[in-house]
Design a protein around this nucleic acid. Structure first.
Length: 868
RNA sequence: GGGCGGUUAGCUCAGCUGGUCAGAGCGCCUGCCUUACAAGCAGGAGGCCGGGGGUUCGAGCCCCUCACCGCCCACCA
């Protein structure tokens, strides 16, 4: 294997990653034994992806986050379990299978419920494993040995138990109530599955004649077809225009129904005509008003989206849209339409099917939330559960405080069937079918979110008292997108407290949403989505992703580490545009680590002493390493993953490779290099361990070449910062040397020195005692004490360096350059002097800030002086 | 209608409690096939930190306000 290291100058993720994953999985370390307490252990329950799903960017980002957290905890020596599984995803899955059936020329109605469910299970067998395999490709160190599915029999048992218990407590009830009817999936959906879209409709002004014959009342509506179900007209109680009419009766055009004119403060006098038709059967507000006033509820539109017999013979069977046209035509004919105007407003649509929601009254199961909400609020206000970023806490609390009943029944076949049976007037709720003949089970299934609300504990075996539950519940972190904070997170908290007896997790991390490069949502239908696997293994790059350095065509095979790095680097603010450069940056980092390791490993002797700093650069890199470790640790603690990865990148490039390795090359190439090898290897090993949670593959691969490493990097301790190794003196000296080298290189360039040429230079600055040779070598100069006139002078910390020789010097340009440098220094000196002359600054600023300013001034002055 | 983010180099973004904070990656320009890496190395150009007020000795960083952009929540026909 070591031949790879010698010959390969490029790290090949596609070659290494599958091999490394194999080793991990074989090691059994993804599966923790259910030992110890939840406090000692660490666990994360994955937001279960839909079985129907394929890995998208959201999964990949969240997977990268969770895996980083899990690996970090595991390396800290904690028994770490990443609970894995998939969700049966009622509507989504049923839709997919129905589509398949249609393509086969049949339908679910045709084959019947039992066969349909069977087909769906088959479908799941065939396609349900896809996303799990994709998580593996990402490097997810989840517990694959205990994969869960929300329809597994044990899980179903938990769901039934929760329902039965809540029913017994009276929190679940059945009622005729206004629901969001989704004509697309032919099911009720919850408020949270409704999305508002802006639509321009026509606002019709319709005259409703008064029964008294004394004129008419004009109302405004965008849905004239619903007037067939009107049962009243409402005006505001203080609306002087109408108060005299309250209690009178109007006649519903076309239908002729008598409508009472009522007063209700809900009506906005300023909107439309100030008179509102009340349709309790088809409008949520009207429904409330109707119940408050005891109005009749008429259902003119049925669950099939067509007009019911109650709409009248003329309209029965029409779709709502057809009925609208017919009603308008009839009204026009009767001269009842006063006028029309275009009207733009928000209209509810189904999140799932995309169809316009039809509010209607339906017999559904509901869950009362007040009792469960209270403790779920308390655990957050008390800080037992922390939400990150913090400002989402208020959003959570606000929603919880205004919570409404949850419609939990769905008119689907795929899901947890409601454990309720009916016989005549009797209703039975229980885990098993009731004894006796003639019972019919409720055909509806539960909202998918009802079952996924039990995820953190049902996956661990609840309601049984299992070792897994005892070892890993409560879990530690729940990482997810904020769009399901209410849909899912809030419900897990409520169910967790109520049924598992404790909060389900202590931290909720709401990650960024990654958008397409043009700022739109990543979506299949828009063509703005990309497949993370295409990034990892190579694949099509859609047009919106192609530009500049990344033209449309194919993604290169970046590898999983690069994708993980890139996604974490992008995840800073709440909405972030996908940036392929960041992924490329991750690939460069992997490659850099690989090559840095080659430099160190291929030269390290077999016998190494204890690593110990013997030079200033050794002390420097050890000191910088401690800072990198502390910064990484802090980033993990605060869920600031972009800082963790970009900080690592900066350390590896800006300190380890660009400077430390360059500084030690002469020592490394010497015959007796054991001492420096020991330090270099130590720093390399710690860096690999530090980076492992975010780029696990390449670090693990390199680790296998580290002499004496033995075992897996994933099982090594996570490096902790050692304060004792912080060395401010060494840091200052190397910082100074680096600046001098950079200044000199710039100077060389300006005097036109060929890259290979060694120049004569004179150091007119202090503080370089231990770095003289290093500066000379890295800047390719030879120190001289020659007092001749320099061809160029560069300012460096503590003075200046005079460049004495050169082949082709543009003295004029260099003079301009020196003048510019002088001008800059003059300016900075003036600014510093001004600051220090300011009494306010000297008196009020902290002493150390003032001191630093004085030191800065002194330094600038000496640099200016040295230029002359 | 309420709330939350964002507006910093050509592009995508960092800038933690206000004091070397004006940065990174990519792109661009100039050199280098220097014995870890050409998917590399070195150097360089490029920004009144969205506009306007204010607080402060000192403000991308705090306050107010305006303007756009994005998202979440919300029962105005």
């Amino acid at each position: 294997m070591s031949s790879d290291l010698e010959t390969r100058t490029r790290y090949e993720p596609s070659e290494a990653e599958p091999r490394v994953f194999e080793r991990w999985e074989q090691s059994g370390r993804f599966h923790p034994e259910p030992e110890g307490t939840p406090e000692e252990n660490y666990s994360i329950a994955i937001p279960p992806p839909n079985v129907t799903g394929a890995l998208h960017m959201g999964h990949a980002l969240n997977g990268s986050i969770q895996d980083a957290l899990i690996r970090h905890a595991r390396m800290q020596g904690r028994n770490a379990k990443w609970i894995l599984g998939t969700d049966h995803a009622g509507i989504a899955t049923q839709t997919q299978v129905e589509r398949m059936l249609r393509s086969q020329g049949t339908s679910r109605e045709e084959i019947g419920r039992e066969a349909f469910i069977e087909r769906t299970w088959e479908w799941r067998e065939q396609y349900g494993g896809t996303i799990i395999e994709q998580y593996k490709r990402l490097g997810a160190s989840a517990d694959y040995t205990e994969e869960r599915f929300t329809l597994d029999s044990a899980y179903a048992h938990a769901v039934q138990k929760v329902f039965v218990d809540l029913f017994a407590k009276g929190l679940i009830y059945r009622d005729n109530y206004m629901v969001n009817w989704d004509p697309g999936s032919r099911s009720a959906i919850s408020d949270l599955e409704v999305e508002e879209r802006e639509v321009t409709d026509t606002l019709y002004y319709v005259d409703y004649p008064l029964e008294s014959g004394r004129g008419s009342l004009t109302i405004a509506t965008v849905r004239p077809e619903t007037m067939l179900a009107d049962t009243a007209i409402a005006v505001h109680p203080d609306d002087d225009r109408y108060t005299r009419l309250v209690g009178e009766t109007a006649i519903l055009p076309i239908v002729g129904r008598r409508l009472k004119i009522i007063a209700d403060p809900y009506v906005k006098p300023g909107f439309g005509t100030g008179a509102l038709k009340i349709t309790p059967g088809h409008d949520p507000n009207d429904f409330e008003i109707g119940r408050a006033h005891g109005l009749e509820e008429i259902s003119a539109i049925g669950e099939d989206g067509r007009m019911t017999p109650e709409a009248g013979e003329r309209f029965q069977g029409m779709t709502a849209l057809e009925a609208r046209e017919a009603v308008v035509a009839a009204l026009r004919e009767a001269g009842a339409i006063a006028r029309t105007e275009p009207y733009t407003h928000n209209v509810p649509f189904s999140h799932r099917s995309g169809e316009r929601i039809e509010p209607l009254i339906s017999l559904q199961w509901f869950m009362r939330m007040e009792e469960l909400v209270e403790p779920a609020i308390e655990v957050v206000t008390s800080g037992r559960i922390k939400i990150h970023p913090e400002n989402w806490t208020r959003v959570y609390l606000n929603w919880m405080e205004n919570i409404r009943p949850w419609c939990i029944s769905r008119q689907l076949w795929w899901g947890h069937q409601i454990p309720v049976w009916y016989r005549g007037e009797e209703t039975y709720c229980g885990m098993e079918a009731p004894e006796g003949e003639g019972w019919v089970r409720d055909p509806d299934v539960l909202d998918t979110w009802f079952s996924s609300g039990l995820w953190p504990f049902a996956t661990l075996g609840w309601p049984e008292d299992t070792p897994q539950l005892r070892a890993f519940y409560p879990t530690d972190v729940l990482s997810t997108g904020r769009e399901i904070l209410f849909l899912w997170v809030a419900r897990m908290i409520m169910f967790g407290i109520e049924f598992a007896g404790d909060i389900p997790f202590t931290d909720v991390y709401l990650h960024s949403i990654i958008q397409a490069p043009d700022g739109r949502r990543m979506s299949k239908s828009l063509g703005t989505g990309i497949d993370p696997l295409a990034l990892i293994e190579g694949g099509p790059r859609p047009p919106v992703y192609g530009s500049g350095a990344h033209p449309p065509g194919e993604f290169p095979a970046y590898g999983a580490d690069a994708v993980r790095f890139g996604l974490l680097a992008m995840s800073s603010s709440q909405d972030v545009r996908f940036n392929e450069d960041k992924v490329a940056q991750g690939r460069q980092l992997a490659n850099k680590l690989w090559n840095a390791s080659r430099l160190v490993l291929l030269r390290a002797p077999d016998e190494l002493p204890q690593p110990q700093a013997s030079t200033v650069e050794d002390a420097w890199i050890l000191s910088r390493l401690q800072r990198a470790k502390a910064a990484t640790e802090r980033a993990f603690e605060t869920f600031e993953f972009h800082r963790a990865v970009l900080g690592l990148y900066d350390f590896v490039y800006g300190e380890l490779c660009d400077w430390y390795l360059e500084l030690i090359k002469p020592r490394l190439y010497a015959d007796d290099n054991a001492e420096v090898s020991a330090v270099a290897l130590h720093v390399l090993s710690e860096t690999l361990a530090l980076a492992h949670p975010v780029i696990p593959f390449v670090t693990e691969e390199i680790w296998s070449f580290v002499p004496g490493s033995g075992g897996l990097l994933m099982a090594q301790p996570f490096p902790a910062a050692d304060e004792a190794l912080i060395d401010d003196v060494a840091e200052a000296e190397i910082a100074r040397a680096i600046e001098a080298v950079e200044e000199l290189r710039g100077g060389r360039d300006r005097v036109g020195a060929p890259p290979g040429r060694t120049l004569e230079a004179r150091l007119d600055a202090g503080g370089y005692d231990r770095t003289l040779d290093a500066v000379a070598r890295l800047a390719r100069v030879e120190w001289s004490t020659n007092g001749t006139q320099p061809v160029a002078t560069v300012p460096v910390p503590g003075g200046s360096i005079a460049i004495l020789t050169s082949d082709a010097v543009d003295t004029e340009a260099e003079a301009r350059r020196t003048a510019a440098a002088r001008q800059r220094l003059d300016g900075e000196i003036a600014r510093a002097e001004g600051k220090l002359a300011n009494r306010g600054f000297v008196d009020k600023a902290p002493a150390q800030v003032v001191e630093a300013e004085r030191a800065k001034l002194a330094r600038l002055r000496s640099e200016l002086e040295a230029l002359d």
